[in-house]
Amino acid sequence: MTAWGRAADPVLICGEVRTGLLQHSESLPARAVADLLRLRPDERVRISERPNGYAVSPEVLTGVDCRLPAAGGARTRVVGTVAARAVVTEGRMLQATASIVVAGPGPDVRHPWSHYLARPGVVEPLGKLPERAVADGLLAGRARPGELDLGAVAERLLARVARHRALDQRAPFKSRRTRLRWVALRALDGEGPSLDSFTLAEDGLRTVELRLPARVSPAAAAALCEDLALHDWLLTTLVRMVERSRLGSADAPEAVLSLRPAVDHLLHLWMPTAHVDRTLAPLWDVLEREPGFTRQWQTLVQRIRDQLALQAITLRRDALTAH
């Protein structure tokens, strides 16, 4: 595990998570998940079963020598490796994250590759690093040609796992993937972690800005953001399914039936902070207050269950009157 203290003088960590439904007819058993995530022969897949099924692939590295996007057009060239990993939750959800630790001011000339390979997941700038401008640049829009595109790295990894032959590509319902882009600047000495912003941008993009103490590892930061992305995806997808079902409209039995995939495959997945580092778990409380993730989720789930109960009563009454 790379702690961000390992780099020369780490300034920020950033990454992008892509989240989607695993394209399989049922939830994939743990053994199949392990096969799916065995991205490297030399490292094993980490699997845990409590409090829910969760598996993390080994990291795969991609060498980069490119510019960082920066607000205001500052040009910062970085060299190093991007770390990417795939995560499967409850054999049902697939996520891929690409992330980097950006080290502080570097030398003016490039080191030999062996230097960078010894620091997996770290990129070092040539010269100074305008951290605020880079953080803003990373969170904003699409990467221009020649700039670091963590989304592309995450997308490639996700596609690689998603085409695995163990998947039958017969998912129980259609759904969209979401993208969550995150940047973590270093918290001031003595201050705890904080979540400065969580925004919903266009086209399924979410952005998160964090401040993290130096002791927090990049893997822990990635796990936090994967957790946010997972629950944001669940909420987004369930809202859309309920909207589409036209729950509460005239054709109630039809609407309730169309929500069956949600009952079968989604409702049990809600478990915030299940695999988040204990020191970072309080950041969830911020989102619980505003916008109120769990509150909205519970309301939706309750609504579905109420409708199911009403339909069950109607069916029972119809059956009784038929006799």
Binding site: L21, Q23, A159, A162, R163, Q169, A171, K174, S175
Partner: peptide
């Protein structure tokens, strides 16, 4: 292949 799989999922 990746494109078709992705579009089919969505």
């Amino acid at each position: 292949t990746d494109l078709f799989l992705r579009l089919n999922s969505e």
